[in-house]
């Protein structure tokens, strides 16, 4: 193991409150599963993303120190892979599939409409913090093209109108 991170020390991030302990425990568990070896970095980042919703800087420092990976390497891996995000997500998440079948089926127009009418592109969150937009490479639901995922629920045969209506309801807290 050649990489030694001089600082910060091997302590949990200062920002962690008791409420976050559970989330950190999950992260620790993954790292221990791999005996804190540096090749566990990607698996660990998956866990961080799952439990925190995004890769928080303090946690990244903690992971770097525990796995003995340089800080810049952690950041490099975190930004190389598209599954990871460094920004906190919005209240709701809308994923639009941009696989070939969905693109042929018109998912490009849906994304254009969201950009024009809602004002966000992939990876962004509306200023009110309500809706995050993500683009998937392929959901594998090609039979339902164009498809999307709304807060974890796969929906197929989408149209710009249906998507905009859904987003609109999230933004106005319309429970329907």
């Amino acid at each position: 193991m050649k990489e030694q991170v001089p600082n910060p020390g091997n302590t949990p991030p200062a920002s962690s409150k008791p409420a976050e302990d559970h989330r950190l425990r999950m992260v620790n568990r993954t790292m221990q599963l791999y005996r804190n070896q540096s090749h566990a970095l990607i698996e660990t980042l998956h866990t961080v993303q799952e439990s925190f919703g995004f890769l928080e800087e303090g946690v990244l420092k903690y992971v770097a120190a525990t796995l003995r990976v340089p800080l810049s390497r952690v950041y490099a891996v975190a930004t190389f892979y598209h599954s990871f995000t460094l920004k906190p997500p919005g209240e709701h998440t809308c994923v639009i599939c941009r696989g070939t079948a969905c693109y042929i089926g018109g998912s490009g127009e849906i994304l254009d409409d969201i950009r024009e009418k809602v004002g966000i592109v992939s990876g962004e969150t509306t200023p009110d913090g309500q809706v995050s937009l993500l683009v998937a490479r392929c959901l594998g639901s090609c039979g339902l093209a164009p498809a999307g995922v709304f807060d974890g629920e796969v929906t197929g045969k989408l149209s710009p109108e249906v998507v905009l209506e859904k987003i609109g309801r999230w933004q106005t807290h319309d429970p329907q």
Partner: peptide
């Protein structure tokens, strides 16, 4: 973790190694 290039075998290996 969302990288098409990891289908290439040397990239896949790098990814398993945590890079």
């Amino acid at each position: 973790a969302g990288a098409f290039v990891c289908g290439e075998e040397t990239a896949l290996i790098a990814s398993i190694e945590g890079r």
